[in-house]
Design a protein around this nucleic acid. Structure first.
Lengths: 206, 206
DNA sequence: ACGATATCAGACAGATCTGTCTAGTCTGCG
DNA sequence: CGCAGACTAGACAGATCTGTCTGATATCGT
């Protein structure tokens, strides 16, 4: 059996499995923390490379420009959120879909209560990128489309007669929850969102 | 009867009635358009004074620093939104409170569908200012407290048994509506938010 | 006419930003 | 050993940003 390294440029699988440079990872981790905590435009390359402990030339060998780093940051957030929620849904595969929805929102509310929570990275990034055609905005769209689809799917399985309409409402609640956990009291929002879901979701099967 | 100008430093009324410098107004109008459309950090002073047709010294004679301009921008947004919504509520003084709520949300959804809509200026500004103690963030808080209070008040008058709980939900819907009108399809959201309100609000009196 | 005030045009300083480039170091593999 | 690739340190260019300052011009009340 060949080691990963012995398989070189032998197809897409090899490409995907290629180990990530530690310098690149450090840069992306640092950028993720800073971009999220302070905003994309407020954080300069110099600061990222200083805090990541990476030389400038190294940075530019991994990312052609800052824009690509921003895009990589958001893309990773998208993949990460998806993986997290998908894992949660898989854990609850036996539960009724309505319960899965409740748990997803509960998880989001709990996450929004953690120290350092600063809202939804996609909403925040969209605020800084007005051009809807920008790659950053396209990742935001991808994230929204995924979440909307997931909501519609779960609503359908929960017996909602109009899953698409309901998904729109759950999207409102999701965005409101993210914003509210940043700007208002996250602890209070936990019960608020529970209450909202009770009013919005189709009643649990008797 | 004295003219406005003949009354000088004769009390708070005179101060409030003092005419605004046209240059200052031009600066604030230009800044409002640019900050909202492109974000605060993305727009520099040079650009604002160029597009406002104002000299740099003039700008700095009216605003000690950019921060004050940003604050003035948000403050004016806050006052403007309040005035608009209060005027709407006054127009509908005869209507039941439930109807007033529906109309407020309908107005917001319609506003969010206009070309150039780029989300809620307060949410967007908050995304760019991480420090909760910053004056900008305090204006954001003031706006949120006002809207939350208005919602609770109207819900109370609409016969909701738990107006505070309901106001939290309406806050979720408001934030979600603003974000959604920016990032999704505003036309579709009009019916979505109507639908959500029907599920959330206490039923209309028979 | 005169003085106060507002405004304009633009140079300037100092910081910071992005991105390029040079030159040297370290590491692992054949 | 010898070489290739990844990395480091930091100078540098060119743009841009905030904020200050000088000096000229226009307006307006008295």
């Amino acid at each position: 059996m060949p080691t990963k390294d012995s398989v070189r440029s032998a197809g897409p699988a090899a490409t995907a499995a290629r180990r990530e440079s530690p310098a690149r990872r450090r840069v992306l981790d640092t950028a993720t923390a800073l971009f999220y905590a302070e905003g994309v435009h407020a954080v300069g390359i110099d600061r990222i490379i200083a805090e990541a402990g990476v030389a400038k030339a190294t940075f530019y060998s991994h990312f052609p420009a800052k824009q690509q780093l921003v895009h990589a940051y958001l893309d990773e957030q998208y993949r990460g959120q998806r993986a997290l929620v998908d894992a949660l849904a898989e854990d609850l595969a036996g539960e009724p879909a309505r319960e899965v929805l409740l748990r997803i929102f509960a998880a989001m509310a709990e996450y929004g209560g953690q120290a350092g929570f600063r809202g939804c990275p996609f909403i925040n990034a969209a605020a800084e990128f007005p051009d809807a055609a920008h790659p950053v905005r396209q990742t935001v769209q991808a994230h929204r489309a995924w979440f909307h689809g997931l909501m519609a799917d779960l609503l359908g399985r929960a017996g909602d007669p109009h899953p698409e309409a309901g998904a729109g409402i759950l999207m409102l609640l999701r965005d409101g929850l993210a914003v509210g956990c940043y700007l208002d009291d996250p602890a209070a929002l936990r019960t608020v969102v529970e209450d909202a879901l009770e009013r919005v979701l189709p009643p649990a099967k008797a």
